[in-house]
Nucleic acid binder design. Structure first.
Lengths: 213, 213
DNA sequence: CCCGCGAGCCGATACGTATCGTCTTGCAAG
DNA sequence: CTTGCAAGACGATACGTATCGGCTCGCGGG
């Protein structure tokens, strides 16, 4: 009956947790997701296998936590000092009044992140895993993607109030018009992902969202 | 030196090939990609393991051929009688002169395909594998995606000549404005993928591509 | 025309390796 | 003294390779 009672997290070793995160990220970028094994992570982290199995249900879960930890750490110091969440999440999308310029700025930054060799392998691995595993995918979307997308919703709503976007447009759909093409090209590698591409997407998309004359 | 000489394909058993295709597709939809094994496929198909290893380099390659075979078979009879390639590939995108209506028709059909439970599991598995494995991804794009996308390019060029799309627009980018959001929502399961969504995407995208007044 | 023969794919299965997830053992931190 | 921890033994799969007869071809001598 006892549903495998949870271990006492207050006694958990932070040192081991971090070592496991680092080892997981390093292995994924070095040998790829398929060939990173739990045993390999444990060995590299100087940790017993059981310590991993005690705290995480799967290899993907380890990588997800490691990735979130990485994103959180790289954002520290960029925020106003409090609890930053992620690079963009901490500061939001700028609102200079020029919607096109603001979006280009953010989408260019997204392009740079996607092309960053350090982030590429873990991001691809998690995305791919989420595509096949609905449960993990939901967690990925909820913990990583949704917070980012919420920023677009905010900025697009402001644009609607400013009259740059038609009132009837659903921000959730407008946002996908921007992000979708970027992700599509990155995921499927159909063509190179460049700043110029991001700019064109913004130009076309905003054109379709603007009020009819 | 002899680079593992290729087997004689003229003596290949078509019966085994088809049995392997069917078993692979069935297992992927039944137990998921991760838990379909080469041994499982061989057992289900009533085939020796070596027969699979002789003709395919990996589990993903088996599934890719099986999927292409499935797509090809389901399109037979729909084409003009000759060598049909795929449902849409055989007939192309209609050109009634109404760009919005034509695109909605095709994107709705794509939505239906993506929501088809028979096609969903193999498509997700192949896409996910291609995201992580660049070599396989390139093959996936080349054999499956590019032929489909070429149809959009054709239709969009016609729209440019008809004056429905600005002359400066690159069809390869315009097409991603349509397909990208659809794939993004389907892959990441952010929100349900419906006909209404396809319609809105077409409305917004075409609005952004149309000539400036 | 016919039959024997070698080549090669086929189903089947044994083999050694790798990874999995669980379980056990001491040890040291709390 | 309780419990997480490092280390690793353990059975269970799945991997990819190597053979083994059995069967079906194509070919060439009779």
């Amino acid at each position: 009956m006892a549903p495998t009672k949870a271990p006492d997290s207050s006694r958990r070793s932070d040192r081991s947790r971090r070592a496991i995160h680092d080892a997981a990220l390093a292995l994924v970028t070095e040998v790829g997701y398929r060939r990173t094994t739990i045993e390999g992570i444990a060995a590299r982290a100087g940790v017993g296998k059981q310590t991993i199995y005690r705290w995480w249900p799967s290899k993907a879960a380890v990588l997800m936590d490691a990735f979130l930890d990485l994103a959180g750490r790289s954002a520290e110091g960029a925020g106003s000092g409090g609890e930053a969440q992620s690079d963009e999440a901490a500061q939001g999308i700028p609102d200079t009044g020029d919607l096109v310029a603001d979006l280009k700025l953010v989408l260019r930054a997204t392009v740079d992140e996607l092309n960053d060799p350090v982030l590429e392998a873990p991001t691809r691995a998690l995305t791919a895993e989420g595509i096949v595993d609905a449960k993990l995918g939901a967690e990925f979307v909820h913990r990583l993607l949704d917070p980012q997308l919420a920023l677009y919703v905010t900025r697009l709503r402001a644009a609607q109030e400013a009259g740059d976007v038609r009132a009837g447009v659903d921000p959730r759909i407008a946002l996908e018009l921007l992000i979708g093409p970027l992700m599509h090209r990155w995921l499927l590698r159909t063509l190179p992902l460049t700043h110029a591409y991001a700019d064109e997407i913004v130009d076309y998309a905003v054109g379709g969202l603007a009020p009819r004359p």
